[in-house]
Nucleic acid binder design. Structure first.
Length: 470
RNA sequence: GGCGCCAUCGUCUAGCCUGGUUAGGACAGCGGCUUUUCAAGCCGUCAACCCGGGUUCAAAUCCCGGUGGCGUCACCA
C-alpha cells in the first residue's frame, strides 16, 4: 500500500457545521499537509431521511470560508454499488448474513415509527448482520495509547438494511479501504466505533489505518459542545465578523500545543508546526473571549486596505450619508476603529454608541457637560473654560495644514494645557469635539476631524458657553 | 446500570515519558501608568497539580486505591 498519508473528513449532512466538526476537519487537514499527503471530503449521507442537501451546502460553505481545501470529494449515497459488492461478498463468505427475525419498531417518539399518516406501524424487517467473531480487539490510538475492547457485547450488529441500503459502519470501512485512508483522525466518541470497524476490516481484508481520537470541544458546562450549551453554527462566526484565520488559529490551539509560548499562527505556520503527538487527552472548553483576542491579533496583521474593506462592509449605509462623511476623514478614523474592535461585528456596537455620529456629523450635547468634573478644591467656571477654548482656537490656527496631525496638535497645545491644568483645558476640548462623556482623546479627534472642522466645533462650543455666561 | 475515556489557576495550556529551582505562559479578572473620559498599549497582581495511601533523601511526575466529570450502549452517523 502507498505510504503517503491520506486522511479524511466525513461529515454527515444532518445539521449545520459546528466548531467541533471544523476542528476535526482542521486536524485532518493539518496532518495531511504537514506530511505532504492528501485529504478527502466524504459526505456520509447513507441515512436518506436525515441527510439534507441544505446541510451539505452549509458544510461546504464553512469549509470554503475557512479555506480548507480537499483533494477529492465523495458522497456515500452515490456509492451504493460499491457497498453492494462488498455486502454480497461478505454474505458469500459467511462474514455477514441475512437476518429475518421479527422486529417491532418501538414507538418511543421515533420518526421512523410513524408513516405519513402518523400511524404507528409494525414492520417485519430483513436486515444484514455482521457475523461477530466475538473476540477482543486491541488497537493503538495515537493519543490515547493501547485500547482493548471485548466485542462480544456488540452481538451480530446490523451493517445494512439491505443490499442497497448500507449502514454507517459498513460504508465507512469500505470507503476508508477503497480510498486508501491511512489515518483516521476523529473525535473521541468515535472510539466506540473503532472495534466494530476493525472487525469489518478484518472480514473484508482491509488494512487497519492509524487511529487518532481527539478530545471533545466542550461547552461552558464541560459537556460535549452542542446546541444547548452554546454551540453555534460556523456561519454565525462569519456573520459576527470573525476572521477565518482567527477561528482556525483558535481551533488548532484547542487540544493542541506548539510546545512553546507562541499563540498566534497563520495556517502555513500551523502546518509547519503541527504534530499529532502533541494532542491533549482531556476535552477543552470553548472560550469565545480568547477567540476574540486571537481575532484581534489577526486583525492587527491586516493591511490597511483589507481592514478598510472589512469595516466598509459592515458600516451601515446611513453613516456614509452623514453630512460630514468623507473618504479622507474615514481613513483618518480607521486606526482608531482598529484600536477599538476585536471583531468586525463590534462596529455595530460602535454605531450604537454613536461613535460615528459625532465623527461624521455635528456633536450633540448639553453645553453644561463641557465643564470638567471638579478636581480637588478648584471648581471650573464656565468663563474660564470659554477663555481656554478661545485660546485653543488661536493656537490651533497657527498650525499649518500639513502639521495638523495628532503629534503636531499635541505639541502645539501641550504647554498651555499643562500650565492651565490639563483636565481643565483638554476635557472641554474633547467634549466640544465629540459631545460625549467617552471618546478618543482630543488630539486624535482633532486630527481626524481636520483643521477646519475642529475650529468650527470649538467656536460653536465657545459661543454656546458665552450665552451660558450671560 | 455495563463499558470506555479523562483529571494542573475561572478558561486554554507548559512541565509528566527520562522523579529534584518560588509549577511557566496566554485569555479573563483585579490594580497602576499613560492625554481628568472610553478603548488600546505597557507594567504589576491574583489564582492550579481531584482525594487518599505507597515507593523515594525528594512525587504534579512512578505504583495502588478511591472520587468526580464526560462519553457510549440504534435497522443515526
Amino acid at each position: 500500500m502507498a505510504d503517503s498519508v491520506i486522511t479524511r473528513y466525513p461529515p454527515s449532512p444532518t445539521g449545520h457545521p459546528h466548531v467541533g466538526g471544523m476542528r476535526t476537519a482542521l486536524f485532518n487537514y493539518l496532518f495531511a499537509k504537514k506530511t505532504g499527503g492528501k485529504i478527502i471530503l466524504r459526505f456520509e449521507d447513507t441515512d436518506k431521511s436525515r441527510s439534507k442537501k441544505e446541510f451539505e451546502e452549509s458544510n461546504f460553505d464553512a469549509l470554503q470560508w475557512l479555506k480548507l481545501s480537499f483533494d477529492a470529494i465523495y458522497k456515500q449515497s452515490e456509492r451504493t454499488l460499491i457497498y453492494k459488492k462488498y455486502l454480497g461478498k461478505m454474505i458469500a463468505e459467511g462474514t455477514a448474513y441475512l437476518s429475518s427475525e421479527e422486529t417491532y419498531i418501538s414507538e418511543g417518539g421515533e420518526e421512523e415509527a410513524e408513516d405519513e399518516k402518523g400511524e404507528h406501524r409494525e414492520r417485519r424487517s430483513e436486515v444484514i448482520r455482521f457475523k461477530n467473531p466475538n473476540k477482543k480487539v486491541t488497537f493503538t490510538d495515537l493519543v490515547l495509547g493501547e485500547i482493548t475492547v471485548d466485542t462480544s457485547e456488540l452481538k451480530d450488529f446490523v451493517i445494512a438494511k439491505n443490499l442497497e441500503e448500507p449502514l454507517y459502519h459498513l460504508a465507512v470501512v469500505v470507503d476508508d479501504f477503497e480510498m486508501g485512508i491511512t489515518h483516521v483522525i476523529r473525535g473521541v466518541d468515535g472510539i466506540y466505533n473503532t472495534p466494530r470497524q476493525i472487525l469489518i476490516q478484518e472480514a473484508i481484508g482491509a488494512p487497519r489505518p492509524v487511529y487518532c481520537h481527539i478530545p471533545f470541544v466542550l461547552g461552558q458546562d464541560r459537556a460535549k459542545l452542542s446546541k444547548r450549551n452554546g454551540s453555534v453554527p460556523i456561519t454565525e462566526y462569519r456573520k459576527l465578523g470573525f476572521l477565518p484565520e482567527a477561528l482556525i488559529n483558535y481551533l488548532a490551539l484547542l487540544g493542541w500545543h506548539p510546545g512553546d509560548d507562541r499563540e498566534i499562527f497563520t495556517i502555513e505556520e500551523l502546518i509547519k508546526e503541527f504534530e499529532l503527538e502533541k494532542m491533549q487527552k482531556a476535552g477543552a472548553v470553548f472560550d469565545v473571549e480568547k477567540l476574540r483576542w486571537i481575532n484581534r491579533e489577526h486583525m492587527k496583521k491586516l493591511s490597511e486596505e483589507d481592514f478598510k474593506k472589512g469595516v466598509l462592509e459592515r458600516l451601515p449605509e446611513n453613516i456614509t450619508a452623514l453630512p460630514g462623511w468623507s473618504e479622507e476623514r474615514f481613513s483618518r478614523f480607521l486606526p482608531e476603529i482598529r484600536d477599538r474592535i476585536s471583531i468586525f461585528g463590534d462596529i455595530e456596537a460602535m454605531r450604537e454608541a454613536g461613535e460615528f455620529n459625532y465623527i461624521f456629523d455635528k456633536p450633540v450635547f448639553e453645553i453644561a457637560r463641557i465643564l470638567p468634573a471638579p478636581k480637588k478644591e478648584v471648581h471650573p467656571d464656565s468663563k474660564r473654560i470659554e477663555s481656554h477654548i478661545l485660546r485653543l482656537i488661536e493656537e490651533l490656527d497657527r498650525i499649518p495644514k500639513e502639521g495638523f496631525t495628532k503629534e503636531g496638535i499635541k505639541s502645539a497645545l501641550w504647554e498651555y494645557a499643562t500650565k492651565e491644568g490639563r483636565g481643565e483645558v483638554l476635557w472641554p476640548m474633547r467634549v466640544a469635539l465629540s459631545g460625549k462623556e467617552k471618546s478618543p482623546d482630543p488630539f486624535t479627534l482633532a486630527a481626524v476631524l481636520g483643521k477646519e472642522e475642529t475650529e468650527l466645533r470649538l467656536k460653536s462650543a465657545a459661543e454656546r458657553l458665552h450665552k451660558l455666561n450671560e
